[in-house]
Design a protein around this nucleic acid. Sequence first.
DNA 1: GCCACATATTTCAAGCCTGAAATTTTAGGC
DNA 2: GCCTAAAATTTCAGGCTTGAAATATGTGGC
Lengths: 167, 167
Amino acid sequence: MSAPEPRTPDRAEEAARAPLSKQRLRLWLRMLEATRHIEARLRDELRTEHDSTLPRFDVLAALYRRPAGLRMSELSAMLKVSNGNVTGIVERLAGEGHVERLRVEGDRRAMRVRLTEDGRARFAEMAGWHEARVNELLKDITAEELDPAIELLARIGRDQHDADGRD
Amino acid sequence: MSAPEPRTPDRAEEAARAPLSKQRLRLWLRMLEATRHIEARLRDELRTEHDSTLPRFDVLAALYRRPAGLRMSELSAMLKVSNGNVTGIVERLAGEGHVERLRVEGDRRAMRVRLTEDGRARFAEMAGWHEARVNELLKDITAEELDPAIELLARIGRDQHDADGRD
DNA sequence: GCCACATATTTCAAGCCTGAAATTTTAGGC
DNA sequence: GCCTAAAATTTCAGGCTTGAAATATGTGGC
C-alpha cells in the first residue's frame, strides 16, 4: 500500500476551477486600475483647466438633466452618495454661483437645488470637454468591443440584491 | 436659392460616428458604476466585519508580497497614490501594530515599512475573505468572458503615455 | 390638540486624497 | 570643505466621503 502521493491534488482541476476565482480577482484589480487611471486624468484636467472637481461635475450633470431641479435626497440617491456628502458639494457649488437652493412649497424640511443660468452654461462647456476627453482615453476600444463591455459592466454594477442566493 | 434645409445633418454619419463617442462615454459611466458598486460592498464589510478600510487593505497587500518591506516612496509608487497619503495610512497601521517603520541603513532620509507578524497574520485572514467576496460579486461573469475583459481593462489602465499622439 | 414615528436635511468626527510647501539628508561640482 | 541641486519624507490646507447623531418638520392615530 504505497501512499497516494498527494503532489498536486488535481492538476486539471486546478487549471480550471481555482483560477476562476483568481481570474475574477484579477478582473477586479484591472477594473480598479483602469477606473483610477481615467479618474486621475479627468480630475487633473478638471482642476487645472476648469477649476472644478469630479464630484462637482457629477452634481452639475445630474441637475443639468432636470431643469426644475432636484431635492437634496433625490440628488444623493441619484449619485449614490450620502446625504451629508451632497450637502457639502452643493454648498460649494452655491458659493460659486452655479446652483441655487430653493425652499419647497408645502414642505419646509425639503430643499430644491437647481442650476443657475451660469451653472447651466458652465456645465454645457465642461460636458463637451468631458466627452471628448473620455473618448480619447478610451480610443483603443474598438466599436465591436464596446457593446459587450458595456453589457458586462452593467451586469456588475446592477444591484443584484435579494435575487436568489445571499444579500 | 432655397436654404439647404439642415434637418438632421447626416443620418448615416450620426449613426456611425457620433455614437462611437457616446458609446465610449457610456462604457466609462458603466465602469465607474460597477467599480463603485463593488468598492461600496467591500468597504462596508471590511469596516463592519474586519474593522479596517480599503486603503489600509491595499497597503497591507503591497507589503505582504515584500517581506523585507518597502520604502514610503516605493509604496506610494506601487499604489499610485501621493506620498502624503501613504504617510497617513502607514501611521494608522503602525498605531494598530500591523506595520513597523524602520530606518534605512545608509540613508537617513528614507524609511522602510514592513509588516509585523501580527500584520502578516491579519492580512492573510483578510485576503481569503477578499478573494471570496470578489468572486461572489463577479459570479455572473463567465469563464469565457474573463480573459477578454481583463485584457480590455488592462489596455485602459495601462499608461499610454508619450505613445504617438498627445500626452 | 398631542404623541409617536417617519422624513428631509444638516452637522460632525474620522479617514482618505491631492498638490504644494517645508524639512532633512545626500550627492556632485568646485 | 562649501554650496547647490536633487531626493525622501512629512506637513498642511482644502476637499471628498461615510455613518451616526442632531434638527426640524410632517403625518397619523387617538
